[in-house]
Amino acid sequence: MKRFKTTKGMIGIVLLSLIALIAIFGPMVIPPDAATAMDMRARRAPPSLTHLFGTDQLGRDLLFRVILGTRTSLEIAVSAVLMSVVLGLPLGLISGYFGRWIDNVLMRFVDTLLAFPALLLALTISAVLGPNIQNTIIAIGVAFTPYLARIIRGEALRVAQMPYVEAARSSGTTDAMIMWRHVLPNILPAVIVQATISLAFAILAEAGLSFLGLGTQPPAASWGLMIQASRDQLDIAPWTAVVPGLAVALTVLGLNMFGDVLRDILDPRSK
């Protein structure tokens, strides 16, 4: 735990805890209609005491909207990454553990998926399924799966050659049991590190999808949507872009810093 006490680790943890608190409790604290309430007299109002972060083109309070957006973005990113772990774990584990032709076939498939840029795959899936929050999760989750599978496979391959696995095998333990009891616990640190880093990418992907109109749909609040809306009013109301942009940046920054420190702790080989 000592290693968390680096500046980077501390900043990462503080940022992430803050963002998590905002995502969980924020929507309960703000007035229920605050984020959608339009104040037509205060359209594009600059930051002030009544509207701390200013308002958007419809006079909606940006502080409240960015808080709601935190929940949306985190919900989507966490669900999508969980989905890619659930899909990628068996794929990578089986491939790395059994090796030989199973590995060849599965990794050939994964490599094919890797030729598709993650954002392209996510955009296509979302467009075909029809854009909404649930399909955005599916789109990003599927698009990230091959990356998770690749890394898990590499780890499983390494662990499968360890003497303790060989010992378990020679004492007649079944393959399923070995994977569950010996391989899985030993690849878990790498999976956690990769999942943390993937979360940062998922936040960016969600913002990108929503920015292009193929992710979260209005009137729901999402950081990508807010940046999209700010495009045409940038010179008169720059805060409409800065507020959601900063929200994305701080979240991704926190995740990256935390992920870096986590990697140093959980994965000694990376040193």
């Binding site: 990108g208 940046i227 940038l234 942009g245 994305v248 701080l250």
Partner: peptide, 13 residues
Amino acid sequence: LLGVSLPDFFWGI
């Protein structure tokens, strides 16, 4: 770190 933390379309804007 800052470069990766902001979406590239934000830089674009």
